[in-house]
């Protein structure tokens, strides 16, 4: 699987720094931002394949952000990441077109696996167009 471009969105700075570092270490072109608003700004300017999105954030929450991303860039695949499993928001997320809804903490390899599948889906979708 070739390299793909990832954006991680999480308001917890420590978590964000570490995961960005680890994903870069695995050879992925990774960026991190601290809020939904910043994520939308980032996506305007930079082509991205997969977004890893925290559900609970102050300001624009994960569900709102997902909705906006899917409206503006429907091709981008989004993996929702949550510290508090909520079935309600899980259903909402999947209905809004998220690729997956994953509970924290998640082993990096497992997350990477899901990210690869999400990227593969994006590629297939682009081929179908």
């Amino acid at each position: 699987m070739d390299k793909f471009r990832v954006l991680v969105v999480d308001d917890e700075e420590d978590f964000l720094e570490t995961i960005v570092k680890r994903l870069r270490d695995r050879g992925l072109e990774t960026h991190g931002v601290l809020s939904g608003e910043k994520a939308l700004q980032f996506l305007e300017g930079q082509d991205t394949d997969v977004v890893v999105l925290d559900v609970r954030m102050p300001g624009m929450d994960g569900i709102e952000t997902l909705k906006e991303i899917k409206k503006r860039k429907p091709g981008i695949e989004v993996i929702m990441l949550t510290g508090h499993a909520s079935v309600e928001s899980g259903i909402q997320g999947m209905q809004l077109g998220a690729f997956d809804y994953v509970m924290k903490p998640v082993p990096l390899d497992e997350l990477l696996d899901k990210m690869r599948q999400a990227y593969e889906r994006k590629v297939i979708q682009e081929e179908q167009l």
Partner: peptide, 12 residues
């Protein structure tokens, strides 16, 4: 997979 997740989650 995402569509199946939606269905399974809904049924559960």
């Amino acid at each position: 997979a995402p569509l199946l997740r939606q269905v399974i989650l809904n049924l559960l």
